[in-house]
Amino acid sequence: MTTPLIVNVHDAKTHFSRLLEQVHAGQEVILAKAGTPYARMVPLEPSPAQRKPGRLAGKLLDDAFFDALPEAELTAWSGA
């Protein structure tokens, strides 16, 4: 991991576009006011992929999976 770049607020305002490009490239930037850290600029995490309901339909379980269980199986599971 790289060492964060510490930039005072005035310089950050002057060179914001350049700093934004550095952050986008993976560099962490700490914004400081009078030498005191105030904020951190870091790149955004990638968005998780959107889920699509039903995309595995028919691929994992066949229709027999949903058939009623035989009475002996039900009794075994109920512990009776």
Rank of each mutant, 00 (worst) to 15 (best):
M1K: 09
M1Y: 06
M1C: 02
T2A: 10
T2R: 10
T2L: 08
T3L: 05
L5M: 10
I6E: 02
I6H: 03
V7I: 15
N8W: 01
V9I: 11
H10E: 15
D11M: 03
K13S: 02
H15A: 07
F16C: 03
F16I: 06
F16H: 03
S17Y: 01
S17I: 05
R18G: 04
R18V: 09
L19R: 03
L19H: 04
L20R: 11
E21T: 09
E21W: 01
V23P: 00
H24N: 09
A25D: 14
A25L: 06
G26S: 10
Q27D: 03
E28S: 02
E28D: 03
I30Y: 06
L31P: 00
A32L: 04
A32G: 06
A34M: 05
A34D: 15
A34L: 08
G35Q: 11
T36K: 12
P37A: 08
P37E: 04
Y38K: 14
A39I: 04
A39N: 06
M41N: 01
L44N: 13
E45D: 15
S47T: 14
P48G: 11
A49H: 07
A49Q: 12
A49R: 13
R51S: 07
P53G: 03
G54S: 09
G54F: 06
G54Q: 10
L56W: 12
A57F: 11
A57P: 00
A57M: 10
G58E: 08
K59F: 08
D63A: 15
D63H: 12
D63F: 11
F65C: 05
F65I: 00
F66C: 08
F66P: 06
D67V: 04
A68P: 09
L69C: 05
P70D: 15
P70M: 05
E71D: 15
A72P: 00
E73W: 05
T75Q: 15
A76P: 01
A76K: 13
A76R: 15
W77P: 00
W77S: 05
G79A: 13
